[in-house]
Design a protein around this nucleic acid. Structure first.
Lengths: 142, 142
DNA sequence: ATGCTATATTTAGCCAGCTAAATATAAGTC
DNA sequence: GACTTATATTTAGCTGGCTAAATATAGCAT
């Protein structure tokens, strides 16, 4: 019984994340972005000029993934890359004006997505849910 | 405040699913499987000989995705494909012995994954969580 | 029988994500 | 200075996932 419930939870999280990704992907296309690129830009809105390795750390992904994402974002005019003046190995990533202009529209998409996800779930439940999700996050990273 | 909490939830689900995928992917490599292939096989363990279109429905993905997954699984010897006798358009997918043998090991991986995910989360909380996740699923599909 | 439409699958090409290996530069060591 | 190791990024090649377009077959209607 417990096993069944637990297994449902694992699968449920799986279904939610893939459906959310699909949905969200479609929504982001209106901004000429692909899923994941919003997270990279989000980090840059907090302060740009960081290296690709630093982006790896923040986005928790591998260097080749950053290379590709950054290439795509650069081609679409949202960021620029400059070689570090003191370390010719590193590339520093900067937002363009177009990249900066996406901050508000992306935040709106986030709110819309979150509202859709949490519709009809009560504030008390949201708080508890939040706590449990944090626990799950730390379970995975530990 | 509410916005912040909600947004945390959206991001939290995002982080959990990507970390889970990474973890799980690594774990499945021991069985010579890639993430997602276990879901396809799982449907076949319930009964094989179904068409690729039926798999699309169960896995909620598009036909080309099935074409690729099925090709990979066939090359690795877990399934075989036969053209439908009455409808030459359709391919029917069957498990090989190797494919059948993966059922128990994959279920073990599921249990390990779920145990890691839900560690230290109480049974009452799990029940509530399950209910909320179901609600989120229906929010997304509706 | 001819033709139009619907269905099943594949191909090509894109993105996120990965690993393994190559490249380039930095920095420490002898 | 020359050698070795560490770090940053890229390339090649794989998977899951997608869309758009191409095939192939089925089935209906005239």
């Amino acid at each position: 019984m417990t096993d069944t419930v637990d297994c449902d939870i694992r699968q449920s999280v799986d279904r939610i994340s893939s459906q959310m990704r699909r949905d969200y992907s479609e929504s982001l296309r209106e901004l000429n972005l692909y899923v994941g690129q919003d997270n990279l830009l989000s980090r840059l809105w907090q302060g740009d000029g960081i290296t690709q390795m630093q982006l790896c750390g923040h986005l928790k992904c591998e260097p080749p993934t950053i290379t590709n994402m950054v290439k795509s974002l650069e081609q679409n005019g949202f960021i620029t890359r400059k070689r570090d003046e003191h370390d010719a190995r590193a590339m520093r990533i900067f937002l363009t004006d177009e990249g900066r202009e996406l901050e508000k529209p992306v935040e709106l998409k986030w709110k819309q997505q979150q509202e859709k996800l949490l519709h009809s779930i009560l504030p008390e439940e949201r708080l508890l849910l939040r706590r449990i999700l944090k626990q799950m996050e730390s379970n995975l990273s530990g």
